[in-house]
């Protein structure tokens, strides 16, 4: 993938300051203020990244542009809690009922490249505290590829290749491109997720060429 072929919408929030200037973000994403999405030419981009703190009311107004982007066989990555049906095939976030910290335990459903070498317990715990990674689910169609779950088989993270011509990646938690400098295996997630974008886009384009 050429540099900055992914478009990342910047919510412009205080927690995002560090990631806004992080070399990984600068080198790999075309970062724009979220409200500039209404006017930017989407043609050069293969992937759209919607972060946890984005204005979903605004993005709902832009729903047709997002759908068209996916219709062209491109990729949308969403991290956070959806309360509006912004993306085809998605439904609003449902929190997990939490009685103990064990309810936050993350498990891998497959050996997917995005989480290769990432330890489940290191996704679950941050400095001994559980719950930062994900706390619920987005209901979805049965046919999606589930990558990570909370206890009771509650999916937090999945890939949907059926709702559109493109691919929708949904993670019901913190922004996965921002797991930097934690001194643990979760540091692998941003580069592996970016590599997956590259691989997934090639796969979609290959399918379209062969069709």
């Amino acid at each position: 993938m050429t540099e900055q072929s992914s478009l990342m919408l910047d919510p412009g929030h205080a927690f995002g300051l560090r990631n806004r200037t992080h070399p990984f973000t600068r080198e790999n994403f075309h970062l724009i203020d979220q409200y500039d999405f209404a006017t930017i030419d989407l043609e050069p981009f293969k992937c759209l990244v919607i972060q946890e703190f984005c204005d979903q009311e605004f993005l709902m107004q832009q729903q047709d542009r997002i759908k068209e982007f996916l219709h062209q066989g491109k990729i949308v990555i969403f991290c956070g809690h959806l309360f509006l049906n912004l993306l085809p095939g998605t439904f609003p976030f449902v929190p997990k009922t939490v009685n103990s910290f064990r309810d936050y335990f993350i498990s891998k459903e497959s050996d997917h490249e995005i989480f290769e070498g990432v330890l489940a317990e290191e996704m679950t715990f941050n400095k001994g505290v559980a719950g930062f990674f994900a706390r619920g689910t987005h209901p979805h169609a049965e046919e999606v590829e589930v990558l990570l779950c909370l206890p009771g088989g509650m999916p937090t993270t999945y890939i949907d290749r059926l709702s559109t011509n493109g691919t929708i990646f949904v993670h019901a938690g913190k922004d996965l491109f921002n797991y930097h400098a934690q001194n643990k295996s979760t540091n692998r997630i941003p580069t592996q997720l970016l590599q997956w974008v590259h691989d997934e886009y090639d796969r979609i384009q290959g399918e379209e060429t062969n069709a």
């Binding site: 409200y35 204005d55 009311e57 309360f83």
Partner: peptide, 27 residues
């Protein structure tokens, strides 16, 4: 009102909405 998910829940969806008489959409 920012349109951010956590603000939607806190101010518009939860029990605290009874305390809010007006929302001003930020844009």
């Amino acid at each position: 009102y920012s349109g951010i998910a956590s603000h939607y829940r806190t101010f518009k969806e939860s029990k605290y909405r009874e305390y809010v008489s007006e929302y001003f959409y930020f844009p």
